[in-house]
């Protein structure tokens, strides 16, 4: 709690706690909507009735109840976890690279996770737990590849070139994944919907294997928030204040890999959430990474769950994959950031 008050003490022009409560309220409303609306037959009125009569055996609507409890609720939970994980991962990656464009989906982190899972499924892996750790290892590999590439010739100092390196890695990994899918029909069937990113058809059980590593990631994030904030003042200043920039950076990369790998294992690669969410959080609360992280917590789920609702409604009775939708929302934001008066330095 002291951590909380410490961080909150930084909220000045706009009170962080007010923003946080407001956004959490919004998230609660959106979560309710996600239980009410769907692509299928159970409309909002019927779902609302079913929700109100949950404990009432007389007016029990078994179909509506099934749709809400077995289809929509798991999607909602996974959306909450995936949104928060991707939002935080984006904020961390942007802080550590001091690059507002550093998004796990653009930097090849998600592609690394997806490629690793594709490989794992090709070689017969099937359990959800295995999938999570494989995805996290893949994410770490993707992260390290692109950062190593960025270290060459000082790409790291140029936001756009880092993104280019990431785009090349992503492209390469996507091609390799596609190659594997062409070569192996079984893997293709298993993975086709997953690889575009979606919350549909996920079970609550898919979420359980995420918790240990996401817990570790959350703990590390809390520990890393202060040194990361100091790193925003520059490497030398951070050393002068007694921090270890190299250790901090390495740990942040591990946390990003855990978060993105976990989210990707649960919902497939979902691009642009890690770009849009921290972007909005900074716009609302200023550049301090601690405030950004706090706001990413409700903002990430808001973006993912609302995108998921929209994905069910645009082409009924079918659904648009979530990854497609976030790309539709995120791409204009990316263009906006790049075209902005100047790239905000972090």
């Amino acid at each position: 709690m002291r951590v909380l008050t410490h961080c909150l003490s930084f909220g000045k022009p706009r009170s962080l706690i007010g923003l946080w409560l407001g956004l959490s309220g919004l998230l609660a409303a959106i979560a309710l909507l996600s239980l009410l609306y769907g692509a299928g037959d159970v409309g909002p009125a019927r779902a609302w009735q079913a929700l109100q009569n949950l404990g009432d055996a007389a007016s029990y609507d078994s179909e509506a109840h099934f749709v809400i409890a077995e289809l929509r609720a798991p999607r909602l939970w996974i959306g909450l976890v995936v949104g928060a994980a991707l939002g935080i991962a984006g904020a961390l990656l942007q802080a550590v690279t001091r690059n507002p464009l550093a998004e796990p989906g653009l930097l090849g982190v998600s592609a690394g996770a997806a490629f690793a899972v594709t490989l794992a499924i090709l070689w017969g892996a099937d359990t959800a737990t295995l999938r999570v750790s494989v995805a996290q290892l893949g994410a770490l590999g993707g992260c390290l590849c692109v950062l190593a590439a960025a270290r060459l010739q000082g790409i790291g100092s140029d936001p756009i070139r880092l993104i280019l390196a990431g785009a090349i890695l992503s492209g390469l990994l996507h091609s390799l994944s596609s190659l594997i899918l062409l070569y192996d029909q079984h893997t293709a069937d298993e993975i086709r919907f997953w690889v575009v990113g979606s919350l549909a058809g996920r079970q609550l059980d898919d979420l359980v294997p995420l918790f240990p590593t996401l817990g570790v990631a959350a703990l590390l994030t809390i520990l890393l928030a202060r040194p990361l904030a100091a790193l925003a003042l520059g490497e030398h200043v951070a050393i002068g204040l007694g921090h270890h920039p190299r250790v901090v950076r390495l740990l942040v990369i591990v946390v990003v890999a855990l978060l993105v790998g976990g989210a990707t294992a649960a919902a497939g690669p979902i691009a642009f959430v890690g770009l849009v969410v921290p972007f909005a959080a900074r716009a609302l609360a200023g550049p301090d990474i601690r405030r950004t992280l706090w706001l990413c917590l409700p903002l990430g789920p808001i973006v993912v769950v609302s995108a998921d609702i929209v994905s069910r409604l645009v082409v009924p009775p079918s659904e648009l994959p979530l990854g497609v939708l976030t790309a539709l929302i995120g791409a204009p934001v990316l263009i906006g950031v790049v075209r902005g008066r100047r790239l905000p330095t972090l």
């Binding site: 930084f10 000045k12 904030a229 100091a230 925003a232 003042l233 520059g234 030398h236 200043v237 050393i239 002068g240 204040l241 007694g242 921090h243 270890h244 200023g286 550049p287 301090d288 905000p344 330095t345 972090l346």
Partner: peptide, 30 residues
């Protein structure tokens, strides 16, 4: 390095503060 930071402060050449960081917030980093 943290013990040293209690004895030795350091100000690099032309340090750069993130946008919108206030004076009080900067000083608190000390």
């Amino acid at each position: 390095t943290r013990q040293l930071a209690k004895r030795l402060a350091l100000l690099p050449q032309q340090p750069h503060a993130p946008e919108a960081l206030t004076v009080a917030e900067l000083v608190r980093f000390g």
